[in-house]
């Protein structure tokens, strides 16, 4: 981990999209008046003829992306996670997932780490909504490198993909040459005192906690669940067998999100207790991302506190 470099995954997403555009002329990008925030502007500047600003009309954006996909295009439709999923849930369900169309939905500004904009913009239910849809793949990368991988991987999947991205700059975790495998999580360390399953911005927090806990003689492993659907069932079962305690942590509601997905696997494969850290069935509020993570117990300190008990 190189905590000195911090990049927001939305920035990595914008750069990766442009690179995809260089390689494949079927890549088209749609945005709903947020291209400077979602970073699709990087693609828009390079390929203006393949970029469609749909205005503040997300439902139409999703439907248009579906139509483009029926003609062989690979549309990436992007907005803040709240408007790219919740606002257009039925459009995604009926016009994309049911016909299994090749549309990639990219929700930036997911979770409370959106910060100052407050609860309306802090999407805490998108994983829940998207993973419940048949045909949908859900990826939640944790840093710059894994985001670039996720964007490229999404373009290779012939079907709908949701990529969950964050506003806040977070540490770069992986080396440039890291090789990821679709549907597989990434394990850090092999401590047996506990497993912390984390996703998105929480992976860096879990890794920080792992370091701090060493000082208390508590040796944990951290698992980056960058693929929420399909989920890596084997690693969940293995960690349940091999560690004393299990924790999940996500910048998302504990209902329907990563914690729920892991609990489903545990129930079927290896029943074990799981502590679900995340938003506890509540909306967020305005504030600095760092303060909110502290208030809602979504930071390294909260994990440390939980595991010291």
């Amino acid at each position: 981990m190189k905590p000195e470099i911090k990049i927001a995954t939305r920035q990595s997403f914008g750069e990766a999209l442009k690179k995809l555009g260089d390689e494949n002329e079927n890549i088209v990008v749609l945005d709903a008046d947020l291209s400077s925030a979602t970073k699709t502007e990087i693609f828009a500047k390079a390929y203006p003829e393949r970029f469609f600003d749909m205005g503040i009309a997300e439902q139409d954006m999703i439907g248009t992306a579906a139509g483009l996909a029926t003609c062989g295009k690979i549309p990436f439709a992007s907005s803040f996670a709240a408007f790219a999923t919740g606002r257009v849930y039925d459009q995604i369900r009926a016009s994309i997932c049911y016909p299994n169309l090749n549309v990639k939905i990219c929700g930036t500004h997911a979770g409370i780490t959106v910060g100052e904009d407050g609860a309306t913009h802090q999407m805490l239910e998108d994983i829940s909504l998207m993973r419940g849809l048949p045909n949908m793949t859900v990826l939640c990368p944790s840093d710059d490198i894994s985001t670039k991988w996720a964007v490229e991987e999404a373009s290779k999947i012939n079907g709908p993909v949701y990529i969950r991205l964050a506003r806040a700059a977070t540490p770069v975790i992986y080396e440039e040459n890291k090789i990821f495998t679709f549907g597989k999580a990434v394990q850090f360390g092999d401590g047996t005192d506990a497993t912390v399953f984390a996703t998105g911005v929480e992976v860096a927090e879990a890794l920080k906690a792992q370091e701090i806990l060493k000082g208390y003689n508590i040796d944990i492993r951290v698992v980056d669940m960058l693929s929420i659907k399909p989920i890596d069932k084997d690693i969940i079962e293995r960690c349940a067998m091999g560690t004393d305690r299990l924790i999940s942590i996500e910048d998302h509601s504990i209902i329907g999100g990563l914690g729920s997905a892991i609990a489903e696997v545990l129930t079927e494969r290896y029943p074990a207790k799981l502590k679900r850290m995340g938003m506890q069935d509540t909306f967020g509020q305005s504030g600095k991302a760092v303060d909110l993570m502290n208030f809602y117990k979504l930071n390294a300190e909260a994990i440390v506190k939980e595991l010291k008990n």
């Binding site: 088209v28 439902q59 439907g63 139509g67 549309p75 039925d90 009926a94 016909p99």
Partner: peptide, 30 residues
């Protein structure tokens, strides 16, 4: 559309077809 040859778009939830038609028209232009 996945079941029937000749059907160009899956529809049923009202209000969504024109957006899809626009997407097809945009692709034609591109």
């Amino acid at each position: 559309m996945k079941k029937i040859p000749g059907v160009d778009m899956t529809t049923g939830s009202l209000g969504q077809g024109l957006s899809a038609a626009n997407g097809m028209a945009l692709a034609g232009k591109l």
